[in-house]
Write a protein that binds this DNA or RNA. Structure first.
Lengths: 205, 205
DNA sequence: TAGATTGTTAATCGATTAACAATC
DNA sequence: TAGATTGTTAATCGATTAACAATC
């Protein structure tokens, strides 16, 4: 049953989770409602209830949703109960930013290693990590059984690197390279290209 | 008429544009087809033809689309014929990466200034720019008539900074802060939160 | 209890796709 | 001409919303 849940619904769950965490941090209340959550996120309350109903009944009539409980449930649904080790490929400015970003750990991810093909960068300390040579990539990813990777490399090497990562067992890939990647069935890809996002907005200006 | 074109269609135009540029760079051909483009992007050819048909007739039966011509047309539609000046707010690791990224200029954007509230960072050279104090933000944005900004600051200051930017005339905002922002009607917002994207994928693992 | 809010149904709305006449 | 591919229509498919009985 969990199989035929629309992608678009899955895509909203992390947003709900993030807002629930914010509500918890504000600490003013133990409980929230689909109306409140929707209001804060610019989403209709009906949609939130519908989305959640795909996975079970998490609320109470008259009361709403217990923030802590719903947070746990969403974390479980998204497989975030334990942390995912993440490989960062590319130790340029962006890899640098990723390695130092401290927003991963409390949300289910830990940067476990970072690679570069530039001998000048290999061995450099980056956050808690040391830059590894990309020749060791397969060995380390297989050994650590890493399933999640982030691509922070130039576009012309993105597809071959994707192939290597997939080959080494990576199943989810977040790419900052401005290029469409081809992957086998069963491998997830997500893109982040700031220019694409900016261009989307300039249409309306 | 241009008004009632679905957001989701607008959102695909930059993808088409990017792929057309790649085709042009490969330089093997003057012409492409909805089928070829769709195949390269994992999108149906019907969808591409339908999307483009919202804006005019850009192709020729039997031949397809002239790459150069369609590129120009899409650039015009997305208002990319001249460059947009962009303000980056936040000169941390991410601001650093943005300031050094050279993928903006040939795609319609130029980082025109970068701000930080940390006196230690103000005056620092970053790429071609010098970090400005955030107290000068309104003055500079108004003077340069900047309409586009990128937020690379911590979440707890993102909403107040958004308000300041909007107040100074910014109409399009790309935010890397992991928080939903509230803006007045007519202001575009786009988000980039790597954790949200990773969480979306782990569901399937 | 009275008020509030859920989970769910059915209706509406919107997006995608298949198919094909037109035509280069 | 014959083959290829567009632009468009109508059908299908899927997502959102309104509404409300159930119930805390």
């Amino acid at each position: 049953m969990a199989t035929d849940i629309p992608d678009i619904v899955i895509g909203r769950l992390p947003i709900y989770l993030r807002e629930l965490t914010r509500l918890a941090e504000e600490g003013k209340q133990k409980t929230t409602s689909s109306h409140e959550l929707g209001h804060r996120l610019g989403i209709s309350s009906a949609q939130i209830r519908k989305d959640l109903s795909h996975f079970g009944e998490f609320g109470k009539q008259g009361t709403g949703y217990h923030i802590g409980y719903l947070t746990e449930q969403l974390s479980d649904i998204l497989r975030l109960s334990s942390e995912w080790d993440v490989a960062v490929v590319g130790a340029g400015f962006l890899g640098h930013a990723l390695a130092h970003y401290n927003g991963f750990l409390d949300r289910g991810f830990r940067i476990a290693c970072i690679f570069d093909n530039d001998p000048q960068k290999v061995g450099e300390k980056m956050g808690e990590l040391i830059v590894q040579p990309d020749t060791d990539l397969e060995k380390i990813i297989k050994h650590k059984q890493i399933k999640v990777a982030i691509l922070a490399i130039p576009p012309h090497v993105a597809q071959p690197m994707t192939d290597r990562l997939v080959n080494a067992g990576v199943k989810a890939l977040l790419s900052y390279a401005p290029i469409h990647l081809t992957v086998p069935e069963g491998v997830q890809v997500s893109y982040s290209d700031p220019v694409i996002q900016l261009q989307r907005m300039t249409y309306y200006l």
